[in-house]
Amino acid sequence: MTNSITPHKKTKVITKKLLAIAFWILLWQVAYTAVAQEILIVSPVQVITRLFELVRLPEFWLSTLLSISRIMLGYLIAVVVGVLLAVLTTKISFFYDLFYPVLSLIKAMPVASFIILALVWIGRDNVPMFISFLMVLPIVWSNVSAGINGVDKGLLEVAKVFEFSSAKTVLKVYVPSVLPMFLSACTTGLGFAWKAGISAEVISVPEYSIGTQLYHAKIYIETQDLFAWTLVVVLLSVLIEKMVVYLISKFDGRRTS
């Protein structure tokens, strides 16, 4: 089956989306006019103007790039470690018993507790990376574990009868079976990593980061900056997610026939 949309329908969909966005921006403008206090709320135009000022500053790019690289590094490490842990804990019950409580604890503990603890343990520059790692790890671990446990036993018997090598069984049976759950963990984890990472930056205040900029905007009561930086976080979140989804669709293309 194909999901082809006619150009006419496509324009209609885009128009609907744009109208919805226009409605909320308009409401924002109305709220701004009604409140009329720039400490509480600034106008959409002011935010965009401020954003254009910010992008001219080298500090903007330094903060943004360092935030992205820290959070994405934590994310990538979590993806790798999560997969390794999933393999280990599904195949050797000793490791499952050993790691299960830790992962449950990570899932249950509030992010703020971790951020403050990490601040004490590892110093402010590495906290966002660590937090992004901790957010993504249990998601990847549990999804990939479920994927491995859910591999069709009948197909494993096929692999056995036709004498697949261990490597071939992993590549041709396990990987394709687990891939959908792994990819969904990657997409879900990304949003968590990004938001928790920025929160960690606000609390840990590394020298250059988006979170630090948000923190400064707060203490100097620069509402215009607060809105502009928030917009940056949202835009980057959308952009990074679109990029990851695009990469995944390329990677997973052969399945969507």
Binding site: D152, G154, L155, V158, K160, V161, E163, V173, P176, R255
Partner: peptide
Amino acid sequence: ISGLEKDYLGKVIGAGKVSVTFQEDRLFDW
């Protein structure tokens, strides 16, 4: 005879290399 069931009594001699069509198709969806 296919070697998929290990827990049995008695002997299976001379099956050699086995190929199987299972009762279910067991194809790889991907």
